[in-house]
């Protein structure tokens, strides 16, 4: 009789010991705090990602349950869908022109505004504005009006006696209005460049000046190499974004004219939510992932030839 309670307390203390251990673990508290996000991430990101992988091997129109078709969607994409290739071509064209222009423009403006004055701060804020409102529907609609047949751009051309063109209605120009819009929203890259420029030690420029380097030379031989990691970062980020461009084409040109602005993401959207060809659209999403991964890997690979890190001396 006397022994029993003693044994019980021993068990209890062992149990509570492990319990306190778990509760006191810092990681547990951490996980607890990120739990809401974690639940959201698992159910709204991870789950749909794997669901789309599964659906990419099915024929699924939302109204009836998915039918397993194996790799048919992928086969059809590469053998029997001219629009798929057209959309890749359009997207690559856009990425190749819009991204370097945007990054270059951002660098140029950041460089020009790289001095400590109130005016520079003011202009930097002003130039950042388009990026703040950038992705919005309102801007896209305004863009559509600006480039419409009787819009401000054509009216301006008329003042100079030039005949306006159908910016959005001509397959040669439509994509360039979208590229122009992208380049115009260079603000966020510019801010990153501005920060990067401040990191470059003033002594480099002083040394170059003493050696008689012009402003142009010091830009080419000091600014660009010192800034190359930032350029690299901006390039990769903007490239990934550009591959996924959707809003502008969706709102301004609807992919037209003649599919000249049919971006990959827009075609994917159409397959999914206009034609309800969900299986095919899922397959397209995975191909886009592979394309972006491949191009990003390529840029990363190339970086060893043109990106200089201060910590790593050659």
């Amino acid at each position: 009789m006397k022994k029993a309670p003693k044994a019980k307390t021993a068990v209890k203390s062992l149990k509570s010991g492990r319990w306190t251990q778990i509760v006191n673990n810092d990681n547990i508290a951490g996980y607890f705090f990120i739990l809401p996000w974690l639940i959201g991430f698992l159910s709204f990101t991870i789950l749909p990602i794997f669901a789309s992988l599964f659906l990419s091997f099915t024929s699924y129109n939302l109204t009836s349950s998915p039918k397993w078709v194996g790799i048919e969607n992928y086969v059809r994409m590469f053998t029997d869908d001219p629009l798929f290739f057209k959309s890749i071509k359009v997207t690559l064209y856009y990425v190749i022109f819009a991204v370097p222009l945007k990054v270059g423009f951002a660098l140029l403006v950041a460089f020009l505004l790289h001095r400590r004055s109130r005016a520079a701060n003011f202009y930097r804020s002003v130039f950042y504005l388009p990026s703040l409102i950038g992705g919005s529907v309102a801007v896209a609609l305004i863009w559509k009006d600006i480039f419409s047949i009787n819009g401000p751009i054509n009216s301006l051309l008329k003042i100079f006696g030039l005949k306006g063109v159908q910016w959005l209605g001509d397959p040669r120009f439509a994509i360039w209005t979208l590229i122009a819009m992208t380049v115009w929203q260079f603000g966020s890259s510019m801010i990153i460049f501005a920060a990067g420029l401040k990191q470059i030690p003033e002594t480099y420029y002083e040394a170059a000046k003493i050696d008689g380097a012009s402003r142009f030379h010091s830009f080419i031989y000091i600014t660009l190499p010192s800034l190359s990691p930032v350029i690299f970062f901006n390039l990769v980020m903007q490239m990934i974004n550009a591959f996924m461009t959707f809003t502008q084409a969706f709102l301004i040109t609807l992919g037209g004219p003649l599919d000249s602005t049919l971006f990959y993401a827009l075609y994917l959207y159409r397959r999914a939510f206009a034609y309800f060809d969900m299986g095919y659209a899922s397959a397209m999403a995975w191909i886009l992932l592979i394309i972006i991964a491949a191009v990003t890997a390529l840029v990363f690979k190339s970086s060893q030839y043109w990106v200089y890190y201060e910590s790593k001396e050659k």
Binding site: S148, I149, Q166, L168, G169, D170, T253, L254, G256, P257
Partner: peptide, 8 residues
């Protein structure tokens, strides 16, 4: 009208 005009 041209396709561009119709699209507007």
């Amino acid at each position: 009208p041209t396709p561009g005009e119709l699209a507007e």
